[in-house]
Design a protein around this nucleic acid. Structure first.
Lengths: 204, 204
DNA sequence: ATCTTTGTTAACCAAATGGTTAAACCATAG
DNA sequence: CTATGGTTTAACCATTTGGTTAACAAAGAT
C-alpha cells in the first residue's frame, strides 16, 4: 500500500520540532510534551514514529552531524592548496554556522555526554579522515610553501578558531559587551581575520 | 552556640559531590540522590544546607567560575608584554585545565542554557575587562613590535586555541584516533605549539 | 459496501524526582 | 544530669515525565 503523504508531513514536523527543542535544551532538558506541542500533534505520535525519546534524539543527532560532516570533508579531502582550504573553510563555515547557531554546541554537548555515541557515527557515515590533510601539509612544508608545521595541530587550530566563538557565544558577548547584531558583525569580520591569522602564522 | 565543625565537613562534602555530578551530567542530568550518595549522606541534607537543586547548582557554578576567572585576569590585567602573556597563559591554562577537565565544558554548557545567569556573575565577581589588553595590543602595534592586530580578535583567538580542544575532546580523539594518554601528550605539545602559532602570526 | 491497514487522539500508568516532615540523635551550655 | 538547638535520618508526598492503550478516524483494497 502506498504511503499516504500525511505521515510524511507529521514525521517531518516531529523531526523539525525535535530538532528545535533538543538543540536548545539538550537530551536531558528536552520534554517530549514540548516537542509534541511545538509540532502541533499528540504526544503519542512521537512514540508512534520514533518509539522512544532516545531514538528520536538519535535521529536528530544523526541529522545534525550529517549537516556538519560535509563542511569538514571540504577541508580534509579537497584538492586545493592549504591556503585556499583555510580561506574557503573559514569563510564557508562561519556563513554556515550563522545559519545554524545551535548546531556546534548541540553536537559537542552530546558527544561529551555520551562519548561512545561517537563510535556509532564513526562507523556509519563516511567519516572524515585526517590522513590526506596531514600529507598535504607535509608536502607543502617540503616544497617550501609553509614553515615547518604539524598537520594535526594545524587542523585543531583551524577548528578551534572557527568553532569556539559559536560555542562560547554568551561568554564572548559578555567580554565584548556586544549585542546580537554586534556579535554577528564581529563574526563577519572573523571570516577574513581568522584566515589571515592562520596564513600569517604558517606561510613562509 | 558555636558552630560545630561537623557541618563544615558535610557542607563541603556536599559541594564536592555536587561539583562532580553537576560537571559530568549538567544541571538537568544531575540527580539529587546521586549527589547525596556520592557525598555519603542523606538526601535531605542537600536541602538542609542548600535549600534547592537550583541553589546548590549556583553554588557549584560560582565556585567553578571563581576558579577560572583568575586565569583570565592573568592575560588581561598583567603587565608583561603580549608575547610573554601569550606564552604564559597558554602554558598555564593547559596545565590548569588538565587538572580540571570538566570545567570548560561545564561553564560553556550552562552559560548557553541560561545566558542571563551570566549577568549575575558579571555584576558580582571582579569581572575581567578587555580594555587594558586592547590598549596594550594597540601600543605594541604602534611601537612596531606587532603587525597590525585587532585586540578583540586576538583575545578570541587565544581563548579559542586554548579552550576548544578541551571542549571538543571526544571529537578530537575521534579524528586523531588517540586514547587518553595520547590526547594528554597532544595537549602537552600544544603548550608550545599554540604559543608559537600565535606569536608567529602577530609578531613583526 | 465492508474490511483492513495506517494514522491520531484522550486517557491512563508506573517510575522517577525534587522536596518535605516528624522524629531521632548528639554535643554542649547551664 | 538534662534541657537546648543544630544536625541527620527514614518515610512520605506531589508532580512531572516517558511511555502505553484502547478506541476512533480515514482511506485504500476487495
Amino acid at each position: 500500500m502506498a504511503k499516504t503523504n500525511k505521515n510524511q508531513d507529521t514525521e517531518g514536523q516531529i523531526l523539525e520540532a525535535a530538532k528545535e527543542v533538543f538543540q536548545k535544551k539538550g537530551m536531558e532538558g528536552a520534554r517530549m510534551q514540548q516537542i509534541a506541542d511545538e509540532a502541533g500533534i499528540n504526544k503519542a505520535m512521537l512514540h508512534y514514529y520514533y518509539r522512544s525519546k532516545q531514538l528520536l534524539f538519535e535521529a536528530v543527532f544523526r541529522n545534525a552531524f550529517a549537516l556538519l560532516a560535509p563542511q569538514l570533508n571540504k577541508i580534509l579531502n579537497d584538492d586545493s592548496s592549504i591556503e585556499e582550504k583555510v580561506r574557503n573553510f573559514t569563510n564557508n563555515y562561519i556563513t554556515f554556522i550563522s545559519k545554524h547557531p545551535y548546531l556546534p554546541n548541540f553536537i559537542i554537548q552530546e558527544l561529551n555526554r555520551n562519548p561512545n555515541f561517537f563510535e556509532k557515527i564513526k562507523q556509519n557515515a563516511a567519516f572524515p579522515s585526517l590522513d590526506k590533510f596531514k600529507g598535504q601539509v607535509s608536502a607543502e612544508v617540503e616544497a617550501g610553501i609553509l614553515k615547518p608545521t604539524d598537520g594535526e595541530q594545524l587542523f585543531i587550530n583551524i577548528l578551534s578558531l572557527n568553532i569556539f566563538p559559536f560555542l562560547a557565544t554568551p561568554l564572548i558577548k559578555g567580554f565584548t559587551n556586544l549585542d546580537d547584531m554586534g556579535f554577528k558583525q564581529l563574526m563577519e569580520r572573523r571570516k577574513t581575520a581568522v584566515s589571515d591569522f592562520i596564513i600569517n602564522s604558517i606561510k613562509k
